[in-house]
Design a protein around this nucleic acid. Sequence first.
DNA 1: ACCTGAACACCGTTCAAGT
DNA 2: ACCTGAACACCGTTCAAGT
Lengths: 211, 211
Amino acid sequence: MAGKQQPKRPALSRELIELAALELIEAEGLEGFSIRKLAKSLKCEAMSLYHHFPSKAEIFDALVDRLVRSFEFPSGELSPRQYLRALAQEWRRIARRYPHFFPFFSLHRLNSEDGVALLDRIAGALLDMGLPQETAARFFRVVNYYLIGAALDETSGYAKGASSLHPVAEQTIAKSYPFLHQISPFFADSQFDTTFEFGLSLILGEQQMKL
Amino acid sequence: MAGKQQPKRPALSRELIELAALELIEAEGLEGFSIRKLAKSLKCEAMSLYHHFPSKAEIFDALVDRLVRSFEFPSGELSPRQYLRALAQEWRRIARRYPHFFPFFSLHRLNSEDGVALLDRIAGALLDMGLPQETAARFFRVVNYYLIGAALDETSGYAKGASSLHPVAEQTIAKSYPFLHQISPFFADSQFDTTFEFGLSLILGEQQMKL
DNA sequence: ACCTGAACACCGTTCAAGT
DNA sequence: ACCTGAACACCGTTCAAGT
């Protein structure tokens, strides 16, 4: 009724741009993402986005923070091991929710305000378990190394990841690489959970390799 | 003496191009690399490179294979644990030799002929230790996850990696994030070796977390 | 066989301008 | 305040051509 004309689309906002960016990345991959495509998906000009973010890097930074803030801490009465397992599974959940963005996320230092808050809370949980500072620090990092490697494998690894342009055929492996062939069934996607738990139980000291 | 004119520079070859590419990547970073800059560093036109490699992706593939072939297996009388430690250190050596290229390397499946040969040889070593196929397979992957996470941290992590564009100041951490502040001295570069060995000893079953 | 230069379809970003 | 369009300095790659 008002004389004002209705806009064809909702006004842009950081929130809207971030959500569209994540969607685009998950649809097209990190390489397939561009500011210009993002603008198209939002039905605006590429330059309009610069009113809300000063650069592409700032958009990606905001996405890292968004993932960080989505981290949900376990609640309830949990033993230290149960708590650590829950943290690990939460990490995996985020990786699997954003498989294409995850490599960027995991190579990024978490030294923004949101990132530091997350790290501080995890550090607090480890110290709360009674671990000495040095042990807590080293263990924090060791578990993190494992989670990053595992999540990268799950999201961009064996089956889905960047392949060689000249991959060796399965039959060639069967014929010429007998050791790899013997163990390769356990490298299937369906084996991920079991392998992940195995490694976690080694690191958490619930089981020990006999070598 | 011959009538033939001397060329201003040696003829291009895959070898020459690969070495120059690695040098450029380590000098400028993965993002800073381009076919055009590579050509400039070789004093030729960008298009000349296409006579030797059909695409940029093929060059990167060749670099992955080059790193794979540079992997040196331990020799001499070694216990299983010593052998595994030597493999881990060799992985680290390569990561540190090519810190800028390493993230690309570690996100790439090793399913080229050279890659598969490397994986097969490592698989053979694990089976040789008497590990059952399933254990060998899962352990292979678990150690690999750890090595990838650790090497990424060492080459592009805490101190050197892609930072937030709005990093939190050290003093702010000291004031507002007490848990992180307590453990952060152990996150220094100088602590890498000790932390790395700690995690490795957990995974190799030489020591167990008490939680 | 080996290399070149112009051209094409993309990038991120600057700038000056429009409402 | 919010958005636009032309332009700039880059990309990887195709194509037709030069020796």
